[in-house]
Design a protein around this nucleic acid. Structure first.
Length: 278
DNA sequence: ATGACCATGTATCATGGA
């Protein structure tokens, strides 16, 4: 089973090339972020004609997450239970929850498509929201892992955090701004502390997943690595290959992010004598 | 060529993105 995560930066603006990519790359299930539309605006037909069913959570022109899959999707869940809300100029507990998380189960594998809040600037309320959002998600994930330790689980999406200095082209450009701050990196590392691992980086140590549209960032390869697939131990055991589809940043009307893809082997029976590879 | 932001709606600017 081939699984992908892709921040498409508007599914309506890119439906043709996204569907072409799904078919050409033989993707079975993809978590999308920043679909930027409500359900009544989603281009269902283009995906269905290519053999993909759609589950989505979209509330407005901002954010929005989805799964497209040619395998059956079960147990669809929009937002995670403890997900914090946010609304500009509002404080307190009654803030609406944004469309930033959707979960589905495919072939027994639990998958979440996540669009982590950007944070904007270190002194912006959105930054505190981002840290809270990640902390609540980590606590939620601890519960899921405790409930179902043997179920393969992956959290994938646009994490809006560059965990390593080498995940941005020039750290000095980001100092004092979001994505590289110590609290954001600690919030990201928390997921590894509770037992998830980045299943892509061991196979692909190099490579960005995002390049700003501005200032020739892509031709100059001035990018960021902020899109990740974090898997439980049971998920990591299934992964046989990983890829970052850098070429999707080329051509007409690309997203500013590119897809991150993993192959899972759901056939092999694991046994206790299996040698450790990593 | 991979080339000097892009997408959306409130629309001829404001907002968000990272």
């Amino acid at each position: 089973m081939r699984v992908a995560t892709y921040n498409v930066n508007s599914v309506r603006a890119r439906v043709g090339r996204v569907v072409d990519w799904l078919v050409r790359e033989d993707i079975d299930v993809a978590g999308l972020q920043e679909i930027k539309c409500k359900p009544e605006q989603f281009p269902f037909d283009a995906f269905r004609e290519a053999g993909y069913e759609v589950e989505l959570h979209g509330l407005s022109q901002w954010n929005g997450v989805a799964f497209v899959s040619r395998l059956p999707m079960e147990d669809v869940e929009i937002t995670f239970p403890s997900q914090p809300g946010f609304a500009k100029g509002h404080d307190g507990p009654d803030q609406p929850k944004e469309a930033r998380a959707i979960g589905v189960t495919v072939e027994g594998v639990r998958l979440w498509s996540l669009y982590v809040p950007n944070g904007r600037e270190l002194d912006d309320p959105h930054y505190a929201y981002k840290l809270d959002w990640l902390a609540k998600l980590a606590a939620e994930t601890e519960g899921w892992l405790a409930e179902r330790p043997d179920q393969p689980l992956a959290l994938m999406g646009d994490w809006n955090v560059a965990p390593l200095d080498t995940d941005v082209w020039d750290l000095s450009v980001f100092e004092g701004h979001t994505h590289v701050s110590a609290p954001e990196r600690a919030a990201f590392t928390r997921f590894e502390e509770i037992g998830l691992t980045d299943v892509v980086r061991p196979r692909l140590p190099e490579g960005y997943t995002y390049w700003d549209y501005k200032q020739l960032r892509f031709p100059k390869n001035e990018g960021m690595r902020i899109d990740f697939i974090l898997g439980s131990a049971a998920f990591a055991d299934l992964v046989t290959a990983a890829a970052i589809h850098r070429d999707e940043r080329k051509g007409d009307a690309p997203s500013d992010h590119v897809p991150v893809v993993v192959d899972l082997d759901l056939e092999t029976e694991l046994d206790d004598d299996r040698p450790m590879i990593f």
